[in-house]
Design a protein around this nucleic acid. Structure first.
Lengths: 208, 208
DNA sequence: TATATACGGTACTCTCTAGTTCCGGATATG
DNA sequence: CATATCCGGAACTAGAGAGTACCGTATATA
């Protein structure tokens, strides 16, 4: 109560808060989320998987909902490299070029995460926005570029509804996995492009 | 321990177990499921909504999972009247004829239920099967009939992939509602038919 | 080297809910 | 009218998980 150096009022420092492990913790949260869903996920599971203390998690995120929100929002990163987008000269070529084993696995993980939080989305606008930004928008943006190019080339009609066309692929994949329980593979995606997306887009050139 | 009439071994009867209210209880369960999701739903909520005692629910269903399973399985009923399917002579006509205000509301409720249980579906095959039977198959069956007719008529190519075509509508609707958070209305469904489904199906006649 | 701080980990509290038990009242059977 | 049984409802038990408090240890700064 008596003498304290003014210098000591602010802590004189030990280590600074270690934020280097935040990504690992968020990644662990996403894993658990994908495996068990929002309600099945416990803070202890996340802490254990990240080999961190539960208290450490609460030092960074005030509650479970905010941890999940942050985790979902941060998925954005390890996704698509917008600086290295394919440009093959045809719509079909571009769409096919986006099919990569890594991308399929990534997409299935995203869908499982989505499945784990859909029921919250209707009641939590903030989470809904984060999920859209991180999970649906990146791929929609890519498709928009592809379809716009195709339109500029005259490959698809000038009055096409690009927004709707962009949705077809993601919608079919999500439906197959989530509702029908069928895993996705390369053949499915190609068949989807050739028998649904391109015909719907009105591509003139006969594919195959 | 001594004398008991053999007639009394089987209870001599009071009232028989009243199963007349089962549908109301299951309907209440579906409502709560749609509003709060599986984990948010409590047995007390269902009992309260059905104006039944909690004990009454446990007299009929041994656990929450089995109640939900039964509730989902029993949604099948109040759906589509297969004896009064439209038959307008064109694929577009048939698809449009299926758009009814009641049907839209019904479908949105189904989708909310689906959202409430998707995360379980990956880990509960029985529930997954019930959900498919009750929520996706009925509509898929209708579509299958429409597309088959169209093929028989020569309205769509003979080598069309009917299974894929059947999925487009449901997939687009589910994606819009669940992922994009956009409510469905008549215009959306019509635009979907005219700009996606019919073009994908390769319908010759210019629609509009 | 000394020290303040954040770390991982454990143990605790508190709330919520699945599932059980018990009760008074209603009702169909006889 | 008597009675067995089921009803709705309320009170209770048990377990799981969110969030908190505290510990001994590791480490970056000075």
């Amino acid at each position: 109560m008596t003498h304290t150096d003014l210098d000591d009022v602010k802590p004189r420092l030990g280590r600074k808060r270690d934020h280097t492990r935040d990504p690992e913790i968020l990644d662990a949260a996403i894993d658990v989320l994908a495996e068990t869903g929002y309600d099945g996920m416990t803070i202890d599971m996340v802490a254990a998987r990240a080999k961190a203390g539960k208290a450490t998690l609460y030092r960074r995120w005030p509650s479970k909902p905010e941890l999940v929100l942050d985790a979902v929002a941060c998925m954005k990163s390890n996704d698509i490299d917008f600086d290295a987008l394919p440009d093959t000269g045809t719509l079909r070529g571009d769409l096919i070029a986006m099919i990569k084993p890594h991308g399929i696995r990534d997409h299935e993980r995203k869908l499982r995460v989505m499945a784990g939080i859909v029921s919250m989305i209707a009641r939590n606008p903030e989470l809904a926005a984060a999920a859209r930004d991180a999970l649906v928008e990146p791929r929609a943006t890519v498709n928009r570029i592809f379809f716009q190019r195709a339109m500029d080339r005259g490959e698809i009609p000038a009055d096409s509804d690009i927004e709707k066309l962009c949705m077809i692929g993601p919608a079919m994949v999500a439906y197959s996995v989530l509702m029908l329980g069928e895993p996705i593979d390369r053949e499915f995606l190609i068949a989807n492009i050739d028998t649904v997306i391109l015909p719907a887009a009105g591509v003139r050139v006969a594919t195959q």
